[in-house]
Simulated scan of single mutants.
Amino acid sequence: MRGKNIVLAEDNSVLSLVLKFKLEKEGCKIFIAQNGKEAIELINKYQPDLILTDVMMEFVSGLELISYVRNELKKQTPILVFSSSGQEEMILNAFKLGANDFMSKPLIPNELVVRVKMLLLKI
């Protein structure tokens, strides 16, 4: 995981900082977006190895973000989606659009690190 760039799109600043700390300990470089619009800017700027995104965000949703990466950018960058809604339809839509993994909130940071490692190994 050393040297991998990750864009984290999450509007909860406390959660963002916890995840940033955990993933930086593993040697990753984390770019935090407070909303989907910022996430798109960071993805275009840094070409990340992995994208972590909440489903519910301002301006551009996590689902729209997945669609943008897969359909506009034509990238197969691994995408892990998380949501507190737990709505089955939203989860299925995320996978249909091209998400690689899903986690329900509240997130378990150590589980997220393991899932990130697994996704990065598949690159």
Results as ranks from 00 to 15, higher is better:
Ala33Asn: 01
Gln34Tyr: 06
Gln34Lys: 15
Gly36Leu: 11
Lys37Val: 01
Ala39Pro: 01
Ala39Trp: 03
Ile40Leu: 15
Glu41His: 13
Glu41Leu: 12
Glu41Ser: 13
Leu42Thr: 00
Leu42Asp: 01
Asn44Leu: 15
Tyr46Glu: 06
Tyr46Trp: 14
Pro48Gly: 07
Leu50His: 09
Ile51Pro: 00
Ile51Trp: 00
Thr53Ile: 01
Val55Cys: 13
Val55Leu: 15
Val55Gln: 08
Met57Gly: 03
Met57His: 08
Glu58Lys: 14
Glu58Met: 09
Phe59Asn: 15
Phe59Leu: 13
Val60Phe: 11
Val60Thr: 14
Val60Asp: 04
Ser61Cys: 10
Leu63Arg: 01
Glu64Ala: 14
Glu64Asn: 12
Leu65Ala: 05
Leu65Glu: 02
Leu65Asn: 02
Ile66Ala: 01
Ser67Gly: 05
Val69Ser: 00
Arg70Cys: 09
Arg70Asp: 05
Asn71Val: 08
Lys74Ala: 14
Lys74Asn: 15
Thr77Ile: 15
Thr77Pro: 10
Pro78Ser: 12
Pro78Cys: 13
Ile79Phe: 06
Val81His: 08
Val81Tyr: 02
Phe82Val: 12
Phe82His: 15
Phe82Asn: 12
Ser83Ile: 03
Ser84Cys: 07
Ser85Gln: 13
Ser85His: 08
Gly86Pro: 02
Gly86Asn: 10
Gly86His: 09
Glu88Met: 08
Glu89Ser: 11
Met90Lys: 11
Ile91Cys: 06
Leu92Lys: 14
Ala94Gln: 09
Lys96Cys: 05
Lys96Thr: 08
Leu97Val: 04
Leu97Cys: 07
Leu97Ala: 06
Ala99Asn: 04
Ala99Pro: 01
Asn100Phe: 00
Asp101Thr: 04
